[in-house]
Each structure stands twice: as C-alpha cells, then as structure tokens.
Amino acid sequence: MAEKYTVAFQGELGAFSEEAILAYFGAEQAEPVPLPEFELVFEALESGQVDRAMIPIENSLFGSVHVNYDLLRAHAVSIIGELELRIRHHLLGLPGGRIEQIRHVYSHPQALGQCRTYLRTHLQHAEAIPAYDTAGAARMVAEMGDPAAAAIAGIRAAAKYGLEVLASGIESHPQNYTRFLVLARPEVTPPEGPPGTMKTSIVFALRENVPGALFKSLAVFALRDLDLYKIESRPLVGVPGSYLFYLDVAGSVHEEAVQRAMDHLAEVAAFVRVLGSYPRGRRVD
C-alpha cells in the first residue's frame, strides 16, 4: 500500500489548494490539513507536524503570491514538486437565491481580482469584501444565511457547504491557472525526472547594487545555455533599495552545467540558496 502523507494548506476544506493536493498526490495518498495562514503552513511542515505542504505561488491572471516567496526564504523547507491547476470560479449563494439580490460578495483577494470583470459587469451594485480563503468565504456565506451574501469559490466548496451555483466560470479569462508548489523538509529526497524535465528554484542577493550587477548574475546561466523560466524580485527587508531575486532555471542541481552556474553565481552574489530541484509540473484542467 502506498504511503499516505499529511499535507498542509492554507484555507478551509473545499479550497483550490485542497483540489491541488488531491490532483498531485491522489485521494488515497493524501490527508489534507487545513490551516488559516500561510505562515502556519510553513511552521507545521518545518516542525514535523505534517509531511508535506501545498502552496500557491503564482496565478496566470493575477500574478505572484508574494508572501509565499518571502516564506520560502524564511523557513527550512524545500520544493520537491509543482502543479498547474485550472481555476474555475463560481458565484455561490444560498439555495433559491438570485443574483439581483446580492449586495456583498466575499472571497480571497486573488479570487476577487481574477473575477473583477464579472464583478464590474454583473454585480456593480454589490460590495466585494476580501476573505482569507475562497472556501472559507463559502462557509461563511452558508453560516450567515443571508440571501444578499455570496461567495466566489470552486465547485467543491459549493458541495461542501450546501450552496447553490448562481453563475459559473466567472473568471476574467478562461486561461486561469494557478501554479502550486509541493514542499517538504530539506532531508526529503525529491523525485528525479527524465533528462530535460527538471527545474531548479533559487534565491540570491546581489553583492552590491551597481550598474550591471544583475546582468552579471544572470549571465552565469546564459553562458551555459540554461533557460530561465521565471525571475521575481522582492525587497530585502532592512536594506532599502536592495532586492532578493528568485529564479527558476532549467535543469537539476545534479547536472554539471547547473552546478557550474551556481558556483559562478556564488562568486558574484552576496548569498545564494537553492530552494529545490524538482520535475516540471503537469497541467491539470
């Protein structure tokens, strides 16, 4: 029998993160563990309370989840996998409710942003109110029992909390995907994919903020024909005007070209940390 993992995620049961867990591990191999804050997800994993964690890192419509970039650096965890999940948002209300009754729409800020076109067009009379989680918003609407309240969440949340779908597929663009990262403690050996399927995530800081410093840092990968999938900058706390840079680069740290690039980067950067090497994730529609 396959090993079953406890997997922490931010939110309530019925959230998209829970859907990502089940898509990645399978229902037989994962026991989702809901927690109210991302910080608590990282702490639970780091302390050994759970075996794995699933966090969103970026959305194709609304951009990066910046807090999770900061938490990746702050905690002793490692990225061991990823998944791209198609996000379908629905307007959920009490059974028998009508859209024209809605005066308050609750959801996570990312979900509200992903559905802003629908909200402006069809619910301009309603107030959009941020909640800590999509499924949590659905649960709150169910508990309130107010026909003037609605939530934006997934179909799993509708079923979980007994709500009715008032409008389906309300995201602003059909190509709405969220990329999730699978995290483990550093001692866990990540799966190794076939050649050409691996990627490595790193974070580094420049040695000095002078013209050409970032170019020299990125050149270590170009010199070795290594593709960069993504670069994200975050402010370096306590050092105004300085930044941390997060990179996703093609290849594994076990490959010679990547190893040499990392050694070269360490010579020109103030610090470098590998956040994980892992197989490129599949897309789940």
Rank of each mutant, 00 (worst) to 15 (best):
P36Y: 01
V41E: 07
F38Y: 15
A44D: 11
F62I: 13
R86K: 14
V65K: 04
E82W: 05
L91G: 04
R73S: 12
I80L: 03
V77K: 04
E31D: 13
L94Y: 04
S64R: 15
Q29C: 12
L92T: 03
L85K: 01
V50Y: 01
E82P: 10
Q29W: 05
E37Y: 11
G81F: 06
V77S: 03
F42W: 14
H89D: 09
P95W: 01
D51H: 15
A74E: 14
F38N: 14
P36G: 06
I80Y: 00
E84Y: 11
I87L: 07
N68I: 06
H89W: 08
R88W: 08
G63P: 00
L61K: 08
E39G: 15
L92D: 02
E58Q: 08
S47F: 05
P95D: 03
L94G: 04
S60K: 07
L72M: 15
A30K: 11
I87A: 06
Q29M: 12
A74M: 11
I87E: 12
R73G: 15
D51T: 07
P56S: 13
A74P: 07
L71I: 11
F42N: 10
L71T: 10
I55T: 07
R52A: 02
E84W: 13
E31Y: 09
F42P: 07
N68Y: 06
G93N: 04
P95K: 01
L71H: 12
L35S: 06
V65M: 11
E39P: 10
D70Y: 05
F38L: 13
R86V: 07
G63D: 09
N68A: 05
E43N: 10
L45W: 06
L83I: 15
P36W: 02
P32H: 05
D51C: 09
G63E: 09
M54H: 03
L83F: 04
P32R: 00
G93T: 05
P34G: 07
I57A: 06
R86M: 09
L94N: 01
Q29A: 14
I55M: 04
E37N: 08
